[in-house]
Amino acid sequence: MTTTRERSLDAAVHLVGTQGIRALTHARVDAQAGLPRGSTSNHFRTRDALRAGVTTWIAEQERGDLAAVLTRTFDDLEGFVDVFSSAIELLTGPHAVRTRARYALFLEAASDPELFAPLRAQREAMAAWSRNLLVTLGAKHPDTALHAFMAFGDGIILHRLTVDPDAPVRPSVDAALRGCLVA
């Protein structure tokens, strides 16, 4: 059974992911979640607390969804391309609204280290996992490859969220990864 807090957080993610950060108010979250007025503020007293709760919630949800990816290791290029492509398709397909909310919060949190902390931790985990795999796959310059590959990942996610939701993922991941390994 979903708790009131979880309903509030899911509704808040939906609002931010579909209408932007300005839509994040206690009253609008209550309405979106179908909760009595004031329910969200019982869990998140201020807007800052609500933003922090949403940020943490998104990180928790993504960790759960990507756990199978982040715990796998690969020693072959094709396996890595398949799993990374699947992760991008998940983030830009079934979880596109949540991913849009994460990007909106990234921008909002850029000047707020406390708000940014859960998103930064999530990104650092993905970077560590990716760097280890790049080393395993033989990247000549793993730190440079990591920065390029992470930038590519952000780029294709943003492209699919904004310009072309049906853009093919696997061929692009394959080309980017091969380029990162030789650069």
Results as ranks from 00 to 15, higher is better:
Gly153His: 12
Gln122His: 13
Ile157Gly: 00
Thr56Asp: 04
Val81Leu: 06
Val97Ala: 14
Ala175Ile: 01
Val135Lys: 11
His43Thr: 08
Arg102Trp: 13
His26Thr: 09
Ala31Met: 05
Phe116Asp: 01
Met126Gln: 15
Ala59Ser: 10
Ala121His: 12
His14Ser: 05
Trp129Arg: 13
Ser41Asp: 03
Arg120Leu: 10
Ser111Leu: 03
Leu50Tyr: 07
Arg160His: 05
Glu6Ala: 07
Val69Glu: 03
Met126Ile: 15
Ser8Thr: 01
Ala110Leu: 04
Ala151Arg: 07
Ala109Asn: 02
Gln61Cys: 07
Thr2Leu: 11
Tyr103Gly: 14
Leu107Tyr: 04
Thr56Lys: 00
Arg98Thr: 04
Trp57Asp: 06
Pro168Leu: 09
Leu158Met: 11
Pro142Ala: 10
Ala167Trp: 06
Gly179Phe: 13
Pro118Gln: 10
Leu181Ala: 13
Asp112Leu: 08
Arg170Ala: 06
Trp129Ser: 12
Ala117Tyr: 09
Arg98Val: 00
Thr3Asp: 07
Gly64Leu: 03
Ile21Phe: 06
Leu133Gly: 14
Arg160Cys: 05
Gln61Leu: 12
Leu90Asn: 12
Asn42Gly: 05
Ala110Thr: 01
Arg178Lys: 15
Val54Ile: 14
Thr2Asp: 10
Asp82Gln: 05
Ala104Ser: 11
Leu161Ala: 07
Thr40Val: 02
Ile157Val: 08
Val169Ser: 10
Asp65Trp: 08
Leu146Asn: 01
Leu66Tyr: 09
Ile157Glu: 07
Asp76Phe: 13
Cys180Val: 12
Arg51Asp: 15
Ala127Asn: 07
Ala31His: 11
Ala96His: 04
Val97Tyr: 09
Leu107Cys: 03
Gln61Ala: 06
Thr136Pro: 01
Gly17Val: 09
Val182His: 08
Ala101Thr: 14
Glu60Tyr: 04
Val69Pro: 00
Pro171Trp: 04
Glu78Trp: 06
Asn132Trp: 13
Leu70His: 11
Val163Ala: 08
Ala175Phe: 06
Val54Glu: 09
Met126Gly: 14
Pro94Asp: 15
Gly155Lys: 00
Asp30Glu: 00
Gly53Leu: 02
Ala167Asn: 04
Leu137Gly: 06
Gly20Asn: 03
Met126Leu: 13
Phe74Met: 10
Leu90Met: 13
Leu35Trp: 03
